[in-house]
């Protein structure tokens, strides 16, 4: 007996298949791609997708992390461990080296290094001659990303011009560039935070421990939870509280794990992925709103930084 309704993929299978297709297009069209891997949840999903796209072969690209020097040591350790397990090459380039070279100049010592990652990224692109960077950005993260292409074109200066993006039709991607130009490819553009967590759950992916509920010393600063006295891998302690701030021990987890100086955790007792999926379904605050201290200043701040070459 034939049925009329055709079998279709579940939403996670569909998203995964699309992401695999995009990664293979980058590998097929570009000479020297690189996959940006921070040790965060989105890039952890991307590694699983790369495995499904290219195993039993090696990845046709190295992994790269632009390290601000202000990353949680749990995340940095995880990053190194994961790359080693996969047997893939990991390149680390650090904002601190750009500071030493004088290409990054902080306005003041405490300024967040997050936005300066773009300089270090561009330097690394030039150093290795990368013509495509595969990133884990999602369109649901922020308004300015809703129109981002899956293959986003950047000029020689790494700049993104919203008026000069290639139309993207069907699943026909155009990753052609001239020398010096660059494509940023986003295989999980169409995923939401919820999809990411559901995928992590389904695939049983391992994550850095700070994604799960844990006790942490924090202060309330500008209405947000601000982690204090955070030890770095080097032993240095950053995020000192101010004299008048009261330190509280709170049970929290991170929804994103960016730069320590500008990533806030959320109160939570979700200590496993299933509980996080549930929390994500019922949360009332967006991922960025809750966790990125640097995005709140201006509605259009992300757009501004993208124009300057930010990922």
């Amino acid at each position: 007996m034939t049925t009329l309704t055709r079998q279709t993929l579940s939403h996670l299978d569909w998203l995964e298949a699309e992401a695999i297709h995009i990664m293979r297009e980058v590998a097929g069209q570009c000479e020297r791609p690189v996959l940006l891997f921070s040790g965060g949840k989105d890039s952890i999903c991307m590694l699983r997708i790369a495995e499904k796209a290219f195993r039993p072969g090696k990845f046709p690209f190295p992994l790269m992390h632009i390290d601000t020097g202000h990353n949680y040591k749990e995340v940095v350790e995880f990053r190194d461990k994961r790359a080693a397990e996969l047997g893939e090459r990991l390149i680390v380039r650090s904002v601190e080296d750009s500071m030493k070279r004088g290409t990054v100049v902080l306005k003041h010592e405490g300024e967040s290094r997050n936005k300066h990652q773009s300089v270090t990224l561009l330097e690394a692109i030039e150093e290795f001659g990368f013509d495509a960077c595969i990133g884990g950005a999602r369109r649901d993260e922020e308004k300015a990303r809703a129109k981002e292409r899956i293959m986003s074109f950047r000029d020689e200066f790494g700049q993104w011009d919203p008026k000069n993006q290639r139309p993207e039709l069907w699943n026909l991607y155009n990753a052609r560039v001239h020398k010096g130009e660059n494509i940023r490819a986003f295989p999980i553009s169409n995923w939401t935070e919820m999809d990411v967590w559901q995928y992590i759950e389904r695939e049983g992916l391992e994550l850095p421990s700070i994604y799960f509920a844990h006790q942490r010393n924090i202060v309330m600063r500008g209405g947000a939870i601000f982690p204090v006295n955070v030890p770095l891998a080097t032993g240095e302690i950053i995020n000192q509280p101010k004299a008048d701030e009261e330190i509280v021990n709170m049970q929290v987890r991170f929804r994103t794990v960016g730069d320590i100086t500008c990533t806030a955790p959320v109160p939570s007792d979700a200590d496993n992925v299933a509980k996080i999926v549930l929390e994500t379904a019922t949360t009332t605050i967006t991922e960025r709103g809750a966790t990125r201290l640097d995005d709140q200043t201006s509605e259009a701040s992300m757009e501004q930084r993208k124009k300057e070459g930010y990922f």
């Binding site: 369109r139 649901d140 308004k143 300015a144 809703a146 129109k147 919203p162 008026k163 993006q165 553009s189 169409n190 939401t192 259009a300 757009e303 501004q304």
Partner: peptide, 18 residues
């Protein structure tokens, strides 16, 4: 969406929502 079009007051591209 974007700043540029907010200034122009019209939408000038395809945006994706979920």
């Amino acid at each position: 969406g974007l700043q540029a079009e907010r200034e122009q007051g019209i939408t000038i591209d395809v945006a994706y929502r979920y």
